[in-house]
Amino acid sequence: MTMEGQNTTTTATITSEKPEETLEDLRSQIASLQSQLAAAKAQLEIKVPSPSTNLPPSPSPPLHLWLLLADSALPIGSFAFSSGLESYISHRSLRPSISPKPTPRSELARFLRLSLLSVSTTTVPFITAAFKSPSSVLALDDTFDATTTCEVARRASISQGRALCSVWDKSFVSSFLKVGGGGEDGIPTHYRPDHFGPSWGYITRLSGLKDTEETLEQVVFVFLFNHVKALLSAAVRLSLIGPYVAQQILASEEVGRLVRMAVERGGRIGVEEAGQSVPTVDLWQGRHERLYTRIFNS
């Protein structure tokens, strides 16, 4: 079993070195990827059913991966966090009334914008850095830990980061691990960062995504889009909007634009330049603990 695995890996590397757009090539590429997978599994000493060779071509690995990572059923518990929305709404109602009174929907839209801005300058730089240099992810994770000074935000980030790593270990590693194991890229696969941002960058990289500008943008886009989804889902449960409006907002051109802007903004910021750009977010989120009643953990 092990010997076979070794042999197929060699062929796989050769074929993948000359990618041509013919169907034949694509098929052989898929076959080689499958054998590569088998090899990786063999190395992990996991028994796998031998892949049948006559399957129809599966969607390209990124699409498959994105569908998994963007799934709201991904068991990392994002539904338990509102990223400060719950506290924000509670604090807004304490303010002296202003006219015209903002609607729940407009309050939500505002928070969404501020939250995306804040995440883009605090977390996105660390996603980018972890994706680009996965071997230094633990140092990045520690720096992020030192930089995230809001206790509530820390708990939310650590909880989701650790959960993402366990989903990787328990569910994804057997299918997606495409790097490391002493391979030429030399990416260590055994690190388990605590925080959500660094682990997102690291895990997506371990999944075999290439270190290109375009892929990196997708990595960050999916992260931020997930963030928006979690906020909207929290908003529905806080009865600010209904589920149809939530989908309407999610589908809107504006959300797409906001997320793209956040991707772009965060991509320009280095880890050393990261910082809080919406100071009130830290206060609202920090004060979440002081809410008399609360549904969410952040």
Binding site: L117, D142, T143, T149, E273, G275, Q276, S277, P279
Partner: peptide, 28 residues
Amino acid sequence: KLLLRDAMILDGEMLCGDETLRERQDSQ
């Protein structure tokens, strides 16, 4: 060893949606 970093960056030239920095600061 970096123990703690507290960083605040205010960008007055950027609009968030149509909100200026002043509006983003929420009357603080």
